[in-house]
Structure formats: structure tokens, C-alpha cells
Amino acid sequence: MLRFDRVFRDGGGFDTLLVMLALGYLVVFSAFPLIYNVVMSFQEVDLFSLASFDRPFVGWDNYSEVMGERVFTPIFWNTVQFVGLSVFFQLTIGFGLALFFQQDFPGATWLRGLFLAGWILPGLVVGAVWGWILAGDFGVLNYVLQSLGLIEGKIFWLSDPSVSLYSGIIANIWLGIPFNMILLSVGLAAIPADVYEAAELDGASRLHRFLTITLPLMRAQLGAVISLGVIFTLQQFDLFAALTRGGPSNASNVLQYWAWQLSFEEYRIGQGSVVSVLMILFVVIVAFVYVRSTRNEHAG
């Protein structure tokens, strides 16, 4: 007993235990659900077979059924738009703000901290707040736009099929900006001031310094922020649940919300799993890019 105790404390015993804990957590809560999801996408799953592992294997049937859905193509393009526009504006606005708060003015760090407030709000709350802002009849946004004379009549952000997707995108951009800004601020702060001074003496204008010093030195951070932005955007579920529920008639539906609708509203769990598997594949590719971009960091 004493010997075991010594091995545990001084040998590799404790290290192994810690590794096993982390590994165990990953297996139970990540790997198993992931693999189980992939398995279900090849099975016929209904409410009666939900509790058993032994379900009929249907090959690629679920896949062809999902791809053959009339709404598949519009929902797919909605997702592309949602991710593309969200990440683009989160990044550009976040980067702009990071650069702005990098300037030395009184209260800069304090104000930057305030921006984080938006990020700690739960997605459902953000959705509810934006629901009021975007409301067609009494929404603040319509009031502001009308007061400024930018629009004639009211825009029904949440119920007009031509704009409902954009209401989700706007809310999501707002939600993602603080994260982008903070991560990019950290990257900017890591660039030594004297490198900029050297470039200034070498004849580089402000724009040149941004293009030839800031951007290349921020490559790793930008790669990380873009990859994480894509992943966070693909798992953005709460906003849709709170704002449009994918409607009207799937005009603002995206893959992640559709997967939930298939599995938990229509109980077509096999098909719901298919959508999830497609998204997992895409996320794996993005994660690979993320790992690559953080690995090639420049050391001083």
C-alpha cells in the first residue's frame, strides 16, 4: 500500500490520472456523441427505436433524402450567407475597433472592457433584445431609420422573407464583435512599438505600416479569429430560436437550426443527424485551418 502511494505521488501515477480525467471527459462528452451521431445518420431512427442501439441500417438513404429536400438548397445558401456575412463584418468591425482602442487616449482600456459586456449576455437574451429592436411596429431600428429619412414605410425585419435572414445576421454580428476585438487587441498589443517606429523611420506611411507590418504580424491571430468565428457562427442556435425560428417559411433557416427542427420537432432523427454530420465535416476542415494558422506563429 505504501509502495503504491509513493508511485502515485512521485512517479507518473498522478500525471496519468490527470490525463485520464481529461481524456475520459472528452470521450464521454465529445467523442461518443459525435460518433453516435454519425452512426445514427446511417440508421432509420424513430421514437420507438430511440432507446435501442439495434436499429435498421439504411446506408446513404438518409443522406439522399436530406439532399433531395426542396428546402435543402435555400437553407444551405442561407447558411453560407449567414456565416460569410457574419464572419466578414465581425472581423472587419472587430479589427477596426481593436485598432481604434490601440490608440493611446484616456479611458481606452476602460471603454474596451465595456464592449465585453455584450459578449457575456446569453444568446437567448440577445435574441430577445434584438427582437424588440427589430420589431416591425414598435422597433427602435425602424424608428431611427424613419427619423433619419432613410426609409419610407416600416420594414418588417422578422417577418418579411426578403430581410428576415439579415435580422439574424445583424444580431449575430453584434454578438461576435467583442470576441473578435479582444482577440485581435491581444495580437496588436504583442507587436512591439519599436518595430512600428523602425518602419516609420524607414519611410512607411500609416497605411504602409498597416499593410506591411500589422497585417503580416497578425496573420496567426486573424486565422484563429476567422476559424473560431466560423465555428461559433455555425453553432449559433439561440438567436434563431429567439428571433425568427427559421421563418417565415424557411426564409431565415440555417443548417444548425434545421438539424434541430428535423430531430426534435419532426422527430426525423436520422435526417437530423445527417445535417449535423455535414456540419461536423465542415467544422473539422475549419479546425484544421485553425490549427495550421496558430502553429506557424512568428517568434520574436
Binding site: 519599436d194 523602425a198 518602419a199 523611420l201 524607414d202 503580416p216 504580424l217 517568434a299
Partner: peptide, 20 residues
């Protein structure tokens, strides 16, 4: 005149080389 118009070169204590 801003630094870039002064035609002056500086060697910094940290060298301030462009790492990339």
C-alpha cells in the same frame, strides 16, 4: 517633419527587426 521625412536611420536597443 514626421520621422519618415527626416532621412534618418536608427538602430534600436531591441534592434526592432521586422520579424516576418
Amino acid at each position: 517633419v514626421p520621422p519618415r521625412g527626416r532621412d534618418i536611420a536608427m538602430v534600436f536597443q531591441s534592434y526592432a527587426l521586422y520579424p516576418h
